[in-house]
Amino acid sequence: MLRVDKASVFFAARDGRAVHALDRVSLDIADRAFVVALGASGCGKSTLLNAMAGFLPLSSGSITLGGVEISGPGADRGVVFQKDTLLPWRNVAENVALGLKFAGMGRAERLARARELLRLVGLQDFADAAPYELSGGMRQRVGIARALATDPAILLMDEPFGALDSLTRELMQELLVEIWERTGKQIFFITHSIEEALFLGTHLVVMSPRPGRIVARYDLDFVRTFAASRDARAVKGAPAFSALREEIRAIVHESDGLRTAAA
């Protein structure tokens, strides 16, 4: 379980003033939970993820994973970035196996493990391809496989589908649900798409900017409905889904309006 306890972040702006990026955010991510953070840009959701990943120290508060305080990046948290960060000088399988290489696993063993993971994301036929030969969606799938390779406790995903076209994006969402079900990982997922947030999450936190904070929390079960029925259109077309989508849209717009009024 990952626990964020009253996490605050102040950045130094260029003029030397402190920018309040994250304001006493508390959040628990239980085992097997799929937590989605939703918000407009500048609401601190990426700041929160960077702190969880250990790329960013907190100004105050704490983040613990399994009771141990996070003090830097580590292989116990797999990160999937919005921009693909695959190494162009390594083929797909070697990219997936990178974390295992860092851990000192032998070549044959780690490549065999990489092939298993590529099968999980449906890319078993592209093990020997170069990353730049793949489409954007395929590259993100490699990124997910790479993050899973070291068997992390939690998967941190920073708008992983943000750069994809909407058709690919829907397929990737369904694939991710399948991976989540099969691996049983906890996932922390950032998005600015309300629909994506509702479809994927078991838990949803809505964030609002300046200072970045959580303004609403929801427990969702659309993803479980989808997991049982495999019918994404039925899930997204249900009246309950659209009603909640409108409700959350109102919250997001209201908090954005407050910001404009204050500024």
């Binding site: 580590g74 960060t85 190494l87 990178l98």
Partner: peptide
Amino acid sequence: VSQERVNAALSLGATRFQLLREIVLPSAL
């Protein structure tokens, strides 16, 4: 060298030396 690439390697458990050999040197090549 892009910071994201470095972050990705660190979150995969790279040590300073592994980071230099696997990421920095090839990126600078």
